[in-house]
Design a protein around this nucleic acid. Sequence first.
RNA 1: GCGCCCGUAGCUCAGCUGGAUAGAGCAUCGGACUUCUAAUCCGAAGGCCGCAGGUUCGAAUCCUGCCGGGCGUACCA
Length: 552
Amino acid sequence: MKQNVKKVVTESYLSLAEEMGWSGETDGAFDISIPKDVKFGDFSCNIAMILASRHKTKPRGMAEKLSERIRDSDLFSSVLVAGPGFINMTVKPIHWVERLKEILDADESFGCVDTGESKKVLVEFVSANPTGPLHIGHGRGAVVGDTLARIMRKAGYDVHTEYYINDVGLQMDNLGRSTIARCFESLGKSFDEPPYKGDYIKDIARRFLETKDADLFSESDDKLVEQARDFTASCIMDDIRADLKEFRIEFDEWFSEMSLHTNGDVEKTIEILKENNHIYESDGALWLKTESAGDEKDRVVRRANGVTTYLASDIAYHKNKFDRNFDTVINVWGADHHGYVPRMKAVVKALGRDPSKLVVRLVQLVSLKKSGQSLSMSTRAGVFATLREIMDEVGVDATRYFFLMRSSDSQLEFDVDLAKKQSSENPVFYVQYAHARCCNIFVTAREREIDPAPFDKNIDLSLLQGKDELALIRKLLELPDVVESCAISLQPHPVTQYLTEVSSLFHYFYRHNRVVTDDPALTRARLFLTKAVRIVLRNGLDILGVNAPERM
RNA sequence: GCGCCCGUAGCUCAGCUGGAUAGAGCAUCGGACUUCUAAUCCGAAGGCCGCAGGUUCGAAUCCUGCCGGGCGUACCA
């Protein structure tokens, strides 16, 4: 609808400009907005205030002239100039109501837009080290990344999702040593303090022992560490995959850091950067020039002992990403990695690629609120809730929804008690209940043997012009705008807000109007509306990866 | 020190590509069930939008400087 309005305004402006001898287009430099207050109509436009100075005229006067032309359109029931020069437009109710058909026709694809123009986008997220179970911080990043991918698919992008497995490096060796230490411990032998102290290592150590003969421990230390490392990492990755699957997150690809070493990509990439004079040697180590591209200092890619750093792998990984010709490469990172952003931008530049095509979406930390107490996550203090624990306690739907309610830029306090409530105080139940209500209305209609196929062309939609109905309809038609704006801003949280608004308007409508009545024509029209509400709620919840139950 | 994020109702947070009287949920208080689910709805109360300047027709929103909180500042990943 907004597009239609914008078109009318633009055409009116161009016709006025021609008459007045003004040059230039509108440049799209004005907004059609939905006013907060209904008394300002359905749409408001600031074009006169934006463009008046350009033509050395007064906003108010220009708005008056424009509104005369806009009034020629059949779309509006009223066009008024207000305040400093706003043009407030009210669309004829019948035009709103008629558009319900679009929702029913589009059905599952209602909400889809084509802003993405099939551009190829890579979304890399989670990518947690396989050194322990996912915690709720990872969980937030996981849902944000996953939902972003879902939104961008709806917005017409060609999306590829990926999990980068950091299965190489010092930390991984430490992981192997931790398992070995627990093995020795369970065999009653003396052991070194394990770098990773979590209980999950004990369990893995037990399984590791089962697969090995006791004489394994006569093997060389290096070989043993390697075996323990790979075994442990693979156990933990299995758990991570299982957790994510249950959390309704699937990846197109699980990308192993190790593979970049075994296929020689890391060395090859270093050679290329050396040849291009981006890498130099100092103190026996190889350094990448990142400072000149905005980083705080240059960074080591290969230590004096010949071992490459994490950054070296990441360079090769990002070269690989860009070689796959994505139009945009999105990385979803925990905010504790924000210092890494300039470095990565510098890497992309050194690779001869456009740094603006790398977009890093930072997701702030999560804390838990439980029984009135606030618990911040701290790995050091050993206080952290795993994703599995929270999923088991509050359920997947509420966990996902709560992770998506806030802007990624804000730290999130997860209210466990609220998330567990099965009542309208809980936003996710509020929305799901609205959906279930829609479904139940159809159950009632069937029970009363009302025309089972009411959605034919004979429905008199003009019966839906009540205030409650129009407010609801206007809101329903916003879904595509919400999808588009979320895809552009790379923020999923407005969807939750939108769904709350739709639900609220529907509950209100439901409470004050009966859908199934003795009036067949009205019943059919309202069933039509109810169907549209159901589609919007279901599609919206689907974007979030949250179930839309038919009964509750 | 430097960098990033945050500072809005009692609490948790939206709103930030500038727009008209600043919103939601929770908590508090008061109402509404012979009706398609009261798992709902209606109403009340609650605010120097951290502080101070600047930009302009207009600033919670943009700029500058402070103050407060979180995170980060590795040849770890």
